[in-house]
């Protein structure tokens, strides 16, 4: 069982919406919405509820731990109170992420889907705080981008000699699908690369970070430049090649 997530928001709809969004990319992860507060008449109103968060943590437990993501101020305070009430043993398996809710939840869910540890999932959430900034969508100019198009992956690329990380492989692949590297393909790449024993960058960013992959904003016809090092370097490049060139199973 993977790490579970609890989404705490003032709004029941926001919490449920974030769960819906994250679940699309992490179907096996336990995602629990803990949004809104009771209005005393069985309905939900804006606010956060100690009981709902407590129940949420309970539901999300049972795997490798729980990461809580929150929205505005009092959601954080409510979550902190619930943590204070946990037994020390249960408390050890729960982390409260300092992260942007939507970006953090998606990144954490993908990380959890890959079977990562509690602290890795927490880190994924907290590193996802930088939202997508349009002015930064095309900043990545790498050696391969200067000559777009398919290059054969090569097990021993230039500069590989003497690398402590083991074998190096690179490759460049053009995105054939209409939607390009949007959320679902980014999740496909990140999740697949997580399972391989290799350090992988895609156009200069960490290939296992779905948020960073999405922030590249690569559309149809753009080139995906992969650089991998480590024992599974070639497998990583092959995986990206296969995924990209099949258009992620989407229309081209």
């Amino acid at each position: 069982m993977s790490v579970g997530l609890v989404i705490v928001s003032h709004s029941r709809k926001i919490a449920e919406g974030v769960v819906e969004l994250a679940a699309q990319m992490a179907p096996d992860v336990v995602l629990v919405a803990a949004g809104g507060a009771d209005d005393g008449e069985g309905r939900s109103r804006i606010g956060t509820s100690f009981e709902r968060v407590q129940e949420g943590i309970d539901k999300a437990s049972g795997g490798d731990g729980v990461v809580i993501l929150t929205d505005l101020g009092s959601a954080v305070m409510t979550a902190e109170m619930v943590l204070e009430f946990l037994e020390p043993e249960a408390r050890d398996g729960v982390r409260l992420a300092e992260a942007a809710l939507v970006e953090g939840a998606v990144a954490a869910a993908v990380q959890a889907q890959g079977g990562s540890s509690l602290d890795e999932v927490l880190r994924a959430a907290e590193n996802a705080v930088v939202s997508i900034r349009p002015e930064e969508l095309e900043p990545f100019v790498s050696h391969a981008a200067a000559a777009p198009g398919r290059e054969e992956a090569r097990p021993e690329g230039p500069g590989a000699a003497g690398s402590a990380a083991g074998p190096v492989a690179t490759g460049s692949f053009v995105l054939p699908n209409q939607m390009g590297l949007h959320a679902r393909p980014a999740a496909t790449l990140a999740t697949g690369l997580l399972e391989l024993d290799a350090e992988v960058t895609v156009n200069g960013v960490d290939g296992t970070s779905v948020m960073l992959l999405m922030s590249l904003g690569l559309g149809q016809g753009r080139t995906v430049d992969v650089e991998a090092s480590g024992p599974d370097a070639q497998a990583a490049v092959d995986f990206v090649a296969q995924a990209v060139e099949s258009g992620f199973g989407e229309p081209s």
Binding site: A37, D38, G40, R45, I46, G47, T48, S49, F50, E51, G73, S74, M77, T78, E80, M81
Partner: peptide, 15 residues
């Protein structure tokens, strides 16, 4: 108060 107030006053007065 913690489970009924909802806003920031809930956890603050609860605490």
């Amino acid at each position: 108060l913690m489970s009924t107030v909802g806003g920031a006053a809930g956890p603050l007065y609860g605490t």
